[in-house]
Design a protein around this nucleic acid. Structure first.
Lengths: 344, 344
DNA sequence: TCGATTTGTCGAACCGATTCGATGAACATA
DNA sequence: TATGTTCATCGAATCGGTTCGACAAATCGA
């Protein structure tokens, strides 16, 4: 069931069938009809490999995700979903490639075997070998996230520095003087995870500007780690009355630990940060947070990539989003506390 | 940078380079070395489309997921992760295709354009057009889930009927007489979602066998729906003292509604069901549930598919898993209640 | 030393599409 | 009627690999 078979049954040459399919030359209505009938009858569709070989493009995008074994956060899942959706809208397929860990073969295959027309790279580190590798090869790519020197690459990113700064401002405006930052895991930050570092920077800067005191904590990406982390925070720094976080997966545990300690949110303790909208809304109480528009980011990344693929001379473009904080129900004026930090 | 270029630089023919790469014929150590050096120097890798065209296989698996816009449950995410991992271990790539909704073009492209060697189909309905379509085309495929007549296809599935039955048995053994089933959304069940129907069947059968009374509820896949659903349950059926569910996404809301109603889990109300282990453990209190081993299922599906691809005469095989219930902290003996159902 | 076998390499065909230049028929123009 | 256009279609080359048959050189056994 290849193009030759169609041609034979329709009594035309293979090239004529090809033109009927692509419309790149005019055909008599009569032959076009005949060819279309045969195609419909046999359910023929051109072989993707053959087409890719001749055309020099695969109509496929690569999506490089963090090693799949490590659970994706809600936000990451949102990115994947929106990339897949946006690609589907543009009639492009998506090839998934876990990278990092033991999966470097997969990354190399995708990058180097002409399997895809371009790549979307998630979870970029401040220094990232994969970016270097992609720049070597010249394959078009767009990052969701950015390296330390991001000028000569295309990316979309969330401005964690600004967002965490705004969170701290917001808490300071409410009278909180002692604020914690709950970051993502220590290993991730140590490995140069950009959002972690930028959140730190925004936090430290704003704490200093407003003359507050701040505590930084790292926390693994799950609820029980969030629980432990806040227990420790309350024990070691009882003066703290609010926290901001970029670790959405930890939030259920954060809530739980506060409740266990007899602190009601937001009356006794305020919580805010950066999270996927879906996640923030489904917590209880719903989280006052900067809602990361994962769907927009993913779709925009796909758009940028499509442009670069169409014309590799397209200037590199960036999109740095700092969505406003959505006020929900987890921040309130700082409670009055006695000197030792117990709630009044 | 194609095979001809390598051949020229190494001073051999293209076929010799090909044999050097595949090892399918013996070469002198000397020429093999020379060729390998050139390959390493230029970082050459064969063009995947050309290879796929000649070999007649793409070394790619298709993974058909529910429309990405609709959020994946934790369990579904586990399937995706394990499929991607298992495929990577077998040096296969994974092409993602959202299906259903507006994405039928994507499904057709994957199925019919010779883009993949085989397909893994998630979220199969009791009657499923995609299965019919795949059987027509003869493309090897394996379902995660199964249709109403699953004998002539390959699949792996979770035995929801047995699992929910066991949940009810467990609750009955603890003295509960009035038990609810929290199913997934009404639309999903109406659309012929297999697990929904099979859970219903197991529930109804066991309720009858043990002479209990049962209530069935449908509930959308998120926490707030779970909350509403349980509120309604408590209002309409105050005699109910326990529930079983296959709707893991609703569980946080289920817990919350029970707490709001002043019911402590498991003292006043027992909760159990089927969930991804990760999810069950991260709830608070951790859920007594049948832990679905998503990673095993996905890996097994990939294995089956690889076998079928290698030899399409491989007999169809099934795997129906009924993992044991892990006792955690959400079931307890039925509370004594007054006749109108209020806790004593 | 001759024929048989093994070893190492090459050339050509092929996979299934796309696309360019060519060709012949139909038609218009002079 | 000769000439130039336009239209519809075809044949052949091409994309970058793999693989089969051929063949020369080296090695072996008798």
């Amino acid at each position: 069931m290849n193009i030759g078979e169609i041609a034979r049954r329709a009594g035309v040459s293979r090239s004529t069938v090809s033109y009927a399919l692509s419309g790149k030359r005019s055909l008599s209505e009569q032959t076009r009809r005949r060819i279309q009938d045969v195609i419909d009858e046999l359910g023929y569709r051109p072989n993707a490999s053959a087409r890719a070989l001749k055309e020099g493009r695969t109509r496929t995008l690569g999506l490089v995700i963090p090693p799949a074994s490590q659970r994706l956060t809600d936000m990451q899942l949102g990115f994947v979903a929106s990339v897949v959706d946006a690609a589907a809208r543009a009639d492009l397929d998506v090839l998934l490639s876990p990278s990092g860990g033991e999966h470097d073969r997969s990354f190399e295959r995708v990058v180097t075997g002409s399997r895809v027309d371009g790549i979307i790279l998630m979870e970029i580190r401040l220094r990232d070998d994969r970016v270097t590798r992609l720049q070597q090869t010249g394959l078009p790519f767009v990052g969701i996230g950015r390296t330390a020197e991001p000028e000569d690459m295309c990316w979309v990113d969330v401005d964690y520095e600004t967002l965490i700064s705004r969170c701290v401002q917001h808490l300071a405006d409410l009278g909180h003087r002692h604020i914690a930052l709950v970051n993502r895991s220590a290993e991730l930050v140590a490995a140069g995870y950009g959002p972690g570092h930028r959140a730190q920077a925004g936090f430290a800067r704003t704490i200093a500007e407003r003359g507050l005191t701040g505590v930084e904590l790292c926390c693994a990406d799950d609820a029980s780690a969030g629980h432990t982390c806040v227990e420790r925070l309350l024990a070691d720094h009882p003066e703290v009355t609010a926290l901001a976080t970029i670790n959405e997966a930890a939030l259920p545990g954060v809530y739980r630990a506060l409740r266990h300690a007899g602190l009601e949110i937001p009356r006794d303790f305020s919580v805010t940060g950066v999270a996927a909208q879906h996640w923030a809304e489904n917590l209880h109480p719903p989280l006052t947070a900067a809602d990361v528009p994962a769907d927009q980011l993913g779709a925009h990344a796909v758009d940028l990539l499509i442009q670069r693929i169409a014309n590799s001379e397209t200037p590199v473009r960036h999109l740095l989003l700092a969505p406003p904080i959505s006020l929900r129900f987890t921040t309130a004026p700082a409670p009055r506390r006695s000197a030792d930090g117990a709630a009044s």
